[in-house]
Design a protein around this nucleic acid. Sequence first.
DNA 1: GATTTATTTCGTTAAATGGCGAAATATAGG
DNA 2: CCTATATTTCGCCATTTAACGAAATAAATC
Lengths: 128, 128
Amino acid sequence: MHKEVALFKALSDPTRLRLAVLLAIHGETCVCHLAAAVNEPDFKVSRHLGVLRSAGMVEVRRDGTWMYYQLAEPRNDLEGFLQDCFRDRLISHPKVREDLDCLESAAVAKPCKKIESLDIRFNKRGPS
Amino acid sequence: MHKEVALFKALSDPTRLRLAVLLAIHGETCVCHLAAAVNEPDFKVSRHLGVLRSAGMVEVRRDGTWMYYQLAEPRNDLEGFLQDCFRDRLISHPKVREDLDCLESAAVAKPCKKIESLDIRFNKRGPS
DNA sequence: GATTTATTTCGTTAAATGGCGAAATATAGG
DNA sequence: CCTATATTTCGCCATTTAACGAAATAAATC
């Protein structure tokens, strides 16, 4: 049951849980915006994302200087439900709503380049 | 989200996860049988059960010198699903099956008193 | 009082976390 | 091409937290 233990351990830190919930609700997001959302230094958020990645919970994609993280495809019922739960239930949690507001503000104040161009092309807000 | 973090932290140890799964499948069980099931010393199992209790995952009932633990009633969707998942999915996990075999052997070798009398009265195996 | 079961305490060891600075990676400008 | 800048990650160390083993303690029974 090493895999299940690793999954629970990855979610057993408040910052990591907040990051996982944000990714579940908001979708693909760059590190700097996540850092603004949870109000923690970049290097700390980066390290926590690394832990989530080691547990197989998130995937990362590079675009220029930015690294975009998103939840990985669920590998079993447990992971699938947790993602559903994060997206559908925890969205009403006060702390999550607060984080989402900070994320939105950060995305408006300093939109990442690639996303910005997407905004222009498709006339809608990008994933980050 | 302290409560969710505490829940995940409680399940982020291999021994505790095994104990939680055993309780989900087998129902109310005394400490000595749980210790035999996971093949760990009593004091260690007792401590881990204490952690699960602090997280609100399990309840305890005293009967003579025995302490009977069982999963607490789920307080939300997350806890409810996890219990369902433990009971219905992880039952096929090799380690869990092995633990269940050890639990069964221990219950037969040294049945607890109260349960033994229940066996006689109802002519079926008790919860432990 | 002795025995059984379970929990707690204490000291040690291992692991996780956080902060700071440096190093990688990529972009932009001259 | 070189430098400057922005974003992210890594290395190192200090601090905190968690887990373990052995013995001591508590609670109930015989």
